[in-house]
């Protein structure tokens, strides 16, 4: 069985082909739009949609070519329909509908979040349900008890900024540029993670919820008080200490939640799962390789594969949605 996955929820145009027995990736193509948005210091939704229009078919063709299959080999199409930028999602969704109708094969709309929850399993078939999943990216910081495929219990989430968003905002405060995650991660290697003590966000009576807005403000206040500019070594210490605070907070709550639920397996997914410190300090967890941490279509195809196996398909009237109930209700 060959499944095509399509992902256009934000600023990456992506397509992937999966096959089964066992379920594995044949191709995973991602066209980044970084150079489109970089001059604006953030993603411009209209420009993202325009770029998807230009890239979607070349990316799908490349995914087919790399998988060494033909259009007629496809047996299902999975496409991200939420959450994300609606204008961007629509491009992938409509191409998927047109292709599925022409090829006479089923198509299924997939949640981007659910994709992230499946990503680590693509490379770690030894992972079995149930597991605790930390989904941490620029848009989300969510903790799930994953009982089986499509059975998710939300354990905790952020009350304000997502962890990746905190990285971006702090990078901006420090004048590092965008996206902030990789830049801070790199500089932090030269710094002392214990140099500056920043506060961890705590939510009363909600031990598994996160808050990163106060941390960002604390970094901003610290920077304001520095006299005579930031030296390279202080910058490294700031990055390392900020990163350590976020990483310890993420790990602490995830491990505690797993313990409380009596779950032995932990997976981490999403863009922030690329963070080297997070990976180093939680060696027992299963992380996807970096290409599967950030937005990709392989994880979408994986969800599509399991959905189609269960007989789930989507109607032609399926629409894209900017938001999704993170409780999967």
């Amino acid at each position: 069985m060959f499944i095509l996955g399509i992902e256009t929820s934000c600023d990456e145009t992506a397509a992937a082909v999966l096959t089964d027995q066992p379920l594995r990736i044949l191709s995973n193509v991602i066209a980044s739009q970084n150079e489109v948005h970089e001059p604006y210091g953030g993603i411009v939704p209209e420009l993202a949609s325009r770029r998807h229009m230009e890239k979607i078919l070349p990316v799908i063709q490349e995914a087919l070519d790399k998988a060494q299959i033909k259009l007629s080999d496809l047996e299902g199409i999975a496409v991200t329909v939420m959450p994300g930028l609606v204008g961007s999602l629509l491009v992938g969704l409509q191409v998927a509908k047109g292709m599925a109708a022409t090829l006479g094969i089923p198509f299924v709309g997939v949640s981007h979040l659910e994709g992230h929850l499946q990503a680590p399993l693509l490379e770690h078939p030894e992972v079995s349900y149930p597991f605790m999943a930390l989904l941490v990216s620029g848009g989300h910081t969510l903790l799930y008890h994953v009982k089986e495929f499509a059975k998710y219990e939300l354990i905790g989430g952020t009350r304000d900024d997502a962890a990746g968003e905190a990285f971006d905002k702090v990078a901006k405060i420090l004048g590092l540029g965008y996206p902030g995650g990789p830049l801070i991660d790199k500089l932090a290697h030269q710094g002392n993670p214990k140099a500056i003590k920043f506060p961890k966000g705590k939510i009363k009576d909600h031990p598994f919820d996160f808050s990163f807005s106060g941390l960002k403000t604390a970094v901003a206040n610290y920077v304001k008080k520095i006299e005579g500019g930031i030296t390279p070594s202080l910058l490294a210490d700031l990055c390392a200490s900020f990163q350590e605070t976020v990483v310890d907070d993420l790990i602490g709550k995830t491990v505690l939640a797993a313990k409380e639920k009596g779950i032995k397996t932990i997976i981490v997914s999403g863009g922030v799962a690329c963070n080297s410190r997070l990976r180093a300090k939680l060696p027992e967890a299963f992380f996807p390789s970096p290409l599967l941490c950030t937005d990709n279509a392989a994880m979408i195809a994986a969800v599509g594969y399991h959905s189609l196996k269960k007989g789930k398909t989507s109607p032609w009237s399926l629409n894209a949605m900017a938001n999704q109930d993170v409780r999967f209700c």
Binding site: M53, L57, I60, L71, L90, L93, Q94, G98, M99, T102
Partner: peptide
């Protein structure tokens, strides 16, 4: 974009 993406899907898949 909705219209053109849909038609791109049709035309592309007709290559099957």
């Amino acid at each position: 974009r909705v219209g053109m993406a849909l038609m791109k899907g049709f035309a592309f898949a007709s290559r099957a």
